[in-house]
């Protein structure tokens, strides 16, 4: 999506990314980025929390209006009321044997598909 932002912006359409994968967006480098430190899947605010979504979106839009240079970014205050260990549980490598087996199984499936 960062590539899309760069393409749109380079061709005359201002863009704002509202997202949670800060390192990826920073690495690709985009015009305007509002960072929400939430589990992937809810960039605009926690699922079921319309009030917070509205506040985040409004803050992000006002930030976009104020930006005057590329790679402008802001950290939007967010509140995550679900399990607080979500950073650790995403793509966890705590069980290497299970992951290795999963990888093997996927490669076997893909090899069969190709035949």
């Amino acid at each position: 999506m960062s590539l899309v932002a760069r393409h749109l912006e380079a061709n005359g359409i201002p863009t704002l990314i509202v997202g949670s994968a800060r390192d990826i967006v920073d690495e690709i480098a985009v015009p305007r980025f509002a960072f929400t430190d939430l589990p992937l899947g809810n960039p605009v605010g926690p699922s079921g929390d319309a009030g917070q979504q509205r506040r985040i979106l409004t803050t992000a839009l006002r930030f976009a209006e104020s930006a005057v240079v590329p790679q402008s970014s802001v950290v939007i205050p967010v509140e995550w009321n679900g399990a607080q260990d979500w950073r650790a549980t995403y793509m966890s490598i705590a069980d290497p044997a299970a992951l290795a087996a999963e990888g093997e199984a996927r490669r076997a499936r893909q090899a069969t598909k190709k035949k």
Binding site: V44, L57, W86, T89
Partner: peptide
Amino acid sequence: HLFWHKEATNTDDLGAYLPLDHLTAL
């Protein structure tokens, strides 16, 4: 099909990732 955090949250609420109704209100 996307790589969001399926153990931590859900995408049952469009407002959390495609806030069309919020923008209509704004």
